[in-house]
Amino acid sequence: MVRCGCGLPVATTTSWTHENLGRKFVACKFYNHETGHRGCNYFEWVDEDMVGWQRDVTNVLEAEKHRLATNISLMKNRLVCVEHEKNRLAEQ
């Protein structure tokens, strides 16, 4: 078992940054991307760096996933509105 400088087992995590979307790395369990706090600063990529076209394709797919999720949410909200209107008209 690999341990960081703090003496704790390292945590395997996935990066969701634009530059390294989907890449796996191990780091100190105190690593926090939002705050920049890295604990003992132990950090190591588990996989190979992506080449430019891979990064571009991955980012396009991630953006498309978010776009589709937004569309689904909008459709669900529209369906609720249609159902509400249908029930209102049925009561008249």
Rank of each mutant, 00 (worst) to 15 (best):
Q54A: 02
C28I: 02
E64Q: 01
A63C: 05
I72R: 08
V80H: 13
G52N: 05
A27S: 07
L21T: 04
V46Q: 13
V57P: 00
A90E: 15
A63P: 01
R3S: 12
H37A: 06
V51K: 09
Q54G: 01
D49L: 04
D56E: 10
G5L: 09
T17N: 03
V80K: 13
V10Q: 03
V82K: 12
V80M: 13
V10A: 03
N41H: 14
Q54D: 06
V46N: 09
V26D: 04
K29W: 09
G39H: 02
Y31R: 01
C6T: 06
K76N: 14
A11V: 12
R78V: 10
G39S: 03
E83K: 14
A69C: 03
C81M: 12
V2Q: 10
R67G: 00
N59S: 07
N41A: 06
M75P: 00
V60K: 02
C4N: 07
A11Y: 11
L89D: 14
W53T: 08
A90I: 13
C40L: 07
V10M: 05
K29S: 04
E91I: 12
H18I: 09
L61I: 02
F30I: 06
C4L: 04
L8W: 13
D47K: 02
T17G: 03
L21M: 05
V60R: 07
I72Y: 10
M75G: 03
R23C: 06
K24C: 11
G7E: 10
N20L: 05
E91K: 15
L8I: 04
C40F: 10
A63Q: 05
K76F: 12
C6D: 08
Y31K: 00
Y42F: 15
L89P: 04
V80F: 14
H37D: 14
T58A: 07
T13S: 06
G5F: 14
R88Y: 15
L79N: 14
K24W: 14
R88F: 15
T14C: 02
A90H: 15
C81Q: 15
W45Y: 11
H18M: 07
L79R: 13
V80Q: 14
A11F: 10
A27H: 00
Y42W: 09
R3Y: 13
F25C: 01
H66G: 01
E44I: 01
